[in-house]
Design a binder for these strands. Structure first.
Lengths: 107, 107
DNA sequence: TAACCATTTAACTTATTAGTTAATTAACTA
DNA sequence: TAGTTAATTAACTAATAAGTTAAATGGTTA
């Protein structure tokens, strides 16, 4: 399956989007993530695998712990590429983009 | 179901994303869209309904024809809002945004 | 080594999704 | 009015997704 397909498949689940939100603050182990949900560890493990296969998160094994972190780059570029294909240059996307750039001017 | 949920649910299907691509070029009737797929009209009708419920397309009845068009605004703002929540201000999103703005400078 | 802990895999069940054909609704036309 | 066309709804089937518990894997520690 190609990447955009994997990305949208991964993002279609509310718990998976919630996982990404948790990981946007900090890296977490599989167990720490599971703690934040009312769901078994095996179920969580599947969600994490789906996110990792879509390249939206990275997993790194440290001893017996699996540390997961957000892969912002692939998330942003995937969604950006998708949107860009649907939006003719000079149209909505451009306005949105300019607005974003302007909003962040001072930071 | 809240809108972001509907949006990602709608976008998780390859045929539905393909419909959006067709509609990015021009508005089309339900029948014209169905022609472009190897799928029955009822199946297509369901996909169109899902996209409309997510507010990603608009449907307008003209006589016996149903004309569908892309709702770019909701698509772009939904994905933007989602991304913005996951990306701390001043980080990847900002770079992406600036890049987009720069790329479009001349247009 | 033996017991323990974190995580994943396997096997399975249930719910949901995506498609089909047949029937219905509504608009158009001879 | 009768027949045709466009689109949707209804009823159903098959494939997929999402969860469960039990078992396996691999690293840690007494």
């Amino acid at each position: 399956m190609d990447n955009i397909n994997l990305v949208f498949e991964a993002l279609s689940s509310t718990p998976r989007r919630k996982i990404l939100n948790y990981l946007s603050a900090t890296s977490l182990t599989a167990g720490e993530i599971a703690e934040r949900f009312e769901m078994s560890k095996p179920a969580m493990s599947k969600h994490l695998k789906i996110l990792q296969t879509a390249n939206l998160i990275n997993g790194e094994k440290k001893g017996q712990f699996m540390h997961y972190s957000l892969n912002r780059d692939n998330l942003v570029t995937s969604l950006h590429d998708f949107t860009a294909n649907l939006c003719p240059v000079g149209s909505v996307l451009k306005k949105e983009s300019k607005k974003m750039a302007d909003d962040n001017e001072g930071s």
